[in-house]
C-alpha cells in the first residue's frame, strides 16, 4: 500500500514537471525556428511632402534600428546601404515615410502642460526584396509632458517595433543548398 502511494506521488510529480517544461520548450522551438531566419534592412526615413527637421529624420532612423534590434525577431539588422545585406537571401526592408509632423516646444509643455506636444505620424512598410508587402501601417508617436522634443521619435520607433512584433512574420523561403 505504502509503495503504491510512493509510486503514484512520484508519477504525479513527474507529470507536473513535464507539463511545466514542455510548453515553454515547444514555444521556444517554434519561435527559434521561424523568426530569426529573417534579416531586416532599415532604410533612411523619407520626408515625403512634409517639412521635417533633418534631426528628427535621423533620430527616427537611429531609434528604429535600436528598437527593431531589441525585438530579437531578426537574425541581423542592417543599415541603409550596408553592403553586407546585398546577397542575403531572406531580407526584409523597412521603409518609413513621414506623413505628419507637428513641432513641439519644451517650454510650452513646461508652462501649460497640455499644449506644446511634438506629434509624428509615419507610414511604415515592411516588404521583401521582391516587393511583397508583409506589413503596412500608419503609426504615430507623440512627445508629451517630460523630456525633449526628440523623445517623440523614440516613442514612434517603439510603436513601429511593436507593430512588427504583433504582425507575425511569414515563414521565409528555405535557403537553396549549395552544390
Amino acid at each position: 500500500m505504502k509503495s503504491n502511494r510512493n509510486v503514484s506521488s512520484t508519477g504525479l510529480a513527474a507529470a507536473l514537471m513535464i507539463q511545466a517544461v514542455l510548453p515553454s520548450q515547444v514555444l521556444a522551438g517554434v519561435k527559434g525556428s521561424v523568426s530569426p531566419q529573417w534579416s531586416v534592412q532599415v532604410n533612411k526615413v523619407e520626408s515625403g511632402t512634409v517639412n521635417i527637421e533633418p534631426a528628427f529624420q535621423v533620430a527616427i532612423y537611429e531609434n528604429l534600428l535600436d528598437e527593431v534590434t531589441k525585438t530579437k525577431l531578426f537574425k541581423q539588422v542592417f543599415r541603409d546601404g550596408d553592403r553586407g545585406a546585398n546577397d542575403l537571401p531572406n531580407l526584409l526592408i523597412l521603409k518609413t515615410t513621414v506623413e505628419a509632423y507637428t513641432p513641439g516646444s519644451e517650454t510650452r509643455r513646461a508652462v501649460t502642460t497640455v499644449s506644446g506636444a511634438t506629434k509624428l505620424k509615419v507610414q511604415s512598410q515592411l516588404s521583401t526584396r521582391e516587393g511583397k508587402i508583409v506589413l503596412q501601417r500608419e503609426i504615430a508617436g507623440d512627445g508629451h509632458f517630460f523630456g525633449g522634443n526628440l523623445r517623440a521619435t523614440h516613442n514612434l520607433a517603439h510603436n513601429v517595433a511593436g507593430a512588427i512584433k504583433q504582425s507575425g512574420l511569414p515563414e521565409p523561403a528555405p535557403s537553396v543548398a549549395e552544390p
Binding site: 534631426a55 529624420q57 537611429e62 542592417f78 543599415r79 546601404g81 550596408d82 553592403r83 526628440l150
Partner: peptide, 12 residues
C-alpha cells in the same frame, strides 16, 4: 555619414 560597409549613420 557612412561606415566602412557603406551603412548610413546619423548622429545628433
Amino acid at each position: 555619414y557612412l561606415d566602412s560597409n557603406g551603412g548610413f549613420h546619423g548622429a545628433i
